[in-house]
């Protein structure tokens, strides 16, 4: 732990603002990384949507897995007959 971390946050921010930096480079890169990972997860992972709900219990009875449509899927080589 460095000395900077032990000072009150407002003072640290004040000093950073004076030096022209609001956040450190490492923290900034970390945030970018997390954002990128989140974006990939949204694009790649199939997410689920509720399809039908039980009127009495409110519980979902049927759930479809939805995959995002991509043009490239149309031309993918496949082994399906027909």
């Amino acid at each position: 732990m460095n000395v900077e971390d032990q000072r009150p946050k407002t003072e640290a921010r004040k000093q950073k603002a004076e030096s022209g930096k609001l956040i450190g480079r490492r923290r900034f890169l970390g945030m970018c990384g997390k954002l990128a990972l989140g974006a990939i997860a949204v694009c790649v992972m199939p997410f689920e949507i509720g399809f039908s709900k039980d009127k009495k219990t409110g519980k979902t009875r049927f759930v479809m897995k939805i995959k995002p449509f991509r043009d490239s899927d149309l031309y993918k080589k496949h082994n399906l007959a027909g």
Binding site: P46, F62, V63, M64, K65, I66, K67, P68, F69
Partner: peptide, 8 residues
């Protein structure tokens, strides 16, 4: 149907 991903 719920076991394999589908397009909407």
């Amino acid at each position: 149907p719920e076991d394999i991903p589908s397009y909407k």
